[in-house]
């Protein structure tokens, strides 16, 4: 175990997979000479060379379409979208191609590819550059969507994503890169599509993922001082969605708060709440609460932006609401 940052954990997973498997290569904007705009691939270009760390033009459709084509031939491309907001420029290739080809051609097409994309708000980047559209992508069968909240999970899940034979969207949160945590050294793989209890508790279940795990943990610390023990279930993958640990926890606490950074409507919380009502209705002791982003495009002004984003106090308040 070593205590490293999320950035280092992701970088390590990529590096180790490239060392292990020559069919793995990286393509994307500024991944090479620049070293990645978030410095995740710093040093890769010098070590692996321009064939395996490919700087692309600003052409998201060509990046994702190109990754799909290369994956079909048996390579394992890791395509980097500088931010998830630019995934919309490649939406056809993500949604109408990557998510469909295996199914539509009766299982003939196999695309072992990963799309790494940075998302999230809170850095005053304005409406177009601050989105958390994770639920949008989780909507499509055929695409796997992963969004880790800890360095350990980031490493293990990215390795699994690269080894997966399906297209995986791997969503990183821009404000988590500096977060530190214990990460196992060497080959460490976590299966995709498995939720995890990150903090045990008995009074209420907080279901969350990615950046909101950090906020939920802080909220739980605060609640603990008042004698309220929150159990936190981290979804880690949005598709496939593993409801097992969620339901198990809920059947124990009978109360749930779902915390996501994206917009509330048609969001992760909507889906998880619906599943709890469907599958554990008899255990419901209070209406499930959702904490999410206000339904506005994120403004640039710092105060307004923070008003729109979920805050620790919102989580604490929602927990008290269900108790």
């Amino acid at each position: 175990m070593a205590r490293i940052t999320m950035r280092e954990a992701i970088s390590q997973a990529l590096w180790e997979e490239m060392e292990r498997d020559p069919s793995v290569f990286i393509l994307g904007e500024e991944v090479g000479v620049w070293g990645g705009t978030y410095a995740v691939t710093k040093g890769f270009y010098d070590h692996f060379g321009p064939e395996r760390v490919r700087d692309t033009p600003i052409a998201e459709a060509a990046i994702i379409g190109g990754a799909i084509g290369a994956a079909l031939t048996g390579t394992r491309p890791v395509a980097e979208l500088m931010t998830i907001n630019f995934a919309f420029s490649a939406m056809d290739h993500i949604v109408n191609e990557a998510a469909k080809l295996h199914y539509m051609f009766g299982g003939q097409f196999v695309l072992p590819m990963v799309i790494r994309a940075v998302g999230g708000g809170g850095r005053q980047l304005g409406a177009t550059h601050s989105q958390t559209p994770d639920a949008v992508f989780a909507h499509f069968p055929g695409l796997k969507v992963v969004a880790p909240g800890t360095p350990e999970d980031a490493k293990g899940l990215l390795k699994a994503a690269i080894r997966s034979n399906d297209p995986v969207l791997f969503i990183e949160h821009a404000t988590l890169y500096q977060v530190r945590g214990e990460v196992p050294e060497g080959d460490y793989v976590i299966p995709l599509g498995k939720s995890k209890v990150q903090r045990p508790g008995k009074d209420v279940t907080i279901i969350t993922y990615s950046k909101m795990l950090e906020l939920s943990t802080k909220a739980a610390d605060q609640l603990a001082k008042e004698g309220i023990e929150a159990e936190i279930v981290d979804l880690r993958s949005l598709r496939p969605l593993d409801m097992g640990p969620v339901l198990e926890s809920f059947k124990k606490t009978n109360r749930a708060v779902i915390v996501e950074e994206g917009w509330r409507s048609y969001g992760v919380g909507s889906e998880v709440a619906a599943r709890i009502y469907e599958e554990a209705f008899d255990y419901v002791d209070a209406p499930i609460q959702r904490v999410a982003q206000k339904e506005v495009p994120l403004p640039y002004n710092r105060t307004l932006e923070q008003m729109a984003l979920p805050q620790i106090e919102d989580i604490v308040k929602a927990v008290k609401e269900v108790l």
Partner: peptide, 26 residues
């Protein structure tokens, strides 16, 4: 833009200046 746009999103339609767009090429 009343502080909602920031550096990348300035505009004034009365001056026939239509922005300030942050998605490359869009």
């Amino acid at each position: 833009s009343k502080g909602k746009g920031g550096s990348m999103h300035m505009a004034d339609v009365n001056k026939n200046f239509w922005g300030g767009h942050a998605i490359v090429g869009a």
